[in-house]
Nucleic acid binder design. Structure first.
Length: 186
DNA sequence: TCATTGATGGTCT
DNA sequence: GACCATCAATGAG
C-alpha cells in the first residue's frame, strides 16, 4: 500500500481561503516519542493578512506574529486565554502574513478527543509553543492527503471569537464539513 | 437553548 | 491594566 502524499510547500503558498477549504479532509500527523497521532481536519478558518482586522497580523509584526510573516508551510502556534494553544498553517509567500487556523479534527489514530475546538485540538495532538515556526514538511509533523476518495459538502460560516473585528467578523471565512460530529460549536 | 462566568497567563499599550 | 482566534459549568427561561 502506498502511503498518502505529504502536502508540498506549494499547497500552502496560495490564497488562505483556498487552502482552508482544501485542508478539509486532509490529515494532520504528529509523531511524539515514536507514537504517531493522526487527525482528519474537519474545520478551519482563514485569516487573510494585515488588512483582515480579525487576524493577529493586523497588529503588525511583533514577536508573537513573526511566524505569520514568514514563508508558507510553517506552523504558527500561539498561547491563548491562559490555558490553550491554537495552531495555524502559514499561507502565501513570505511577508503576506496570512494563515489558516485548524479548529477541529476527527480522531484517526492515537487521539483522545471528548469535545472539540482549536484549544483541545492542540492538546490532543500534543502541540505546544515549542512547535511554533516548525516546518510542516518535517518528518514528524506534517499534513497528508486522505487515503481514499471522500465526498462531503463544505459549509461556510463567520469566524468564531472575532466580534471585535467589525465587518471582518461577518465574513464567511470559517469552513467545515457538513454534518461531521467533530465540528466545534454545533 | 441561550447567556454568563471562572480558570489562567501571555501580549501589547 | 485590558484584552484575548477557548472551554466547561452553571442557571434562567
Amino acid at each position: 500500500m502506498t502511503g498518502p502524499n505529504k502536502l508540498p510547500r506549494s499547497f500552502y503558498d496560495r490564497d488562505p481561503i483556498q487552502v482552508a477549504r482544501e485542508l478539509l479532509g486532509m490529515r494532520l500527523v504528529h509523531v511524539i516519542d515514536g507514537v504517531t497521532r493522526v487527525g482528519r481536519i474537519v474545520e478551519t478558518e482563514a485569516y487573510l493578512g494585515p488588512h483582515d482586522l480579525a487576524a493577529h497580523s493586523a497588529r503588525g509584526r511583533t514577536p508573537r506574529t513573526e511566524v505569520m510573516f514568514g514563508p508558507p508551510g510553517h506552523a504558527y502556534v500561539y498561547f491563548i486565554y491562559g490555558m490553550y494553544f491554537c495552531m495555524n498553517v502559514v499561507t502565501q509567500p513570505e511577508g503576506m502574513a496570512s494563515a489558516v487556523l485548524l479548529r477541529a479534527l476527527e480522531p484517526i489514530q492515537n487521539l483522545d478527543v471528548k469535545s472539540s475546538g482549536p484549544g483541545l485540538l492542540c492538546k490532543a495532538m500534543g502541540i505546544d509553543k515549542s512547535l511554533n515556526g516548525r516546518d510542516l514538511l518535517s518528518k514528524d509533523f506534517f499534513v497528508t492527503e486522505s487515503t481514499g476518495v471522500e465526498k462531503f459538502t463544505i459549509m461556510k460560516r463567520p469566524r468564531v471569537g472575532v466580534d471585535y473585528a467589525g465587518s471582518w467578523a461577518r465574513r464567511l471565512l470559517r469552513f467545515y464539513i457538513k454534518g461531521n460530529g467533530h465540528v466545534s460549536r454545533r
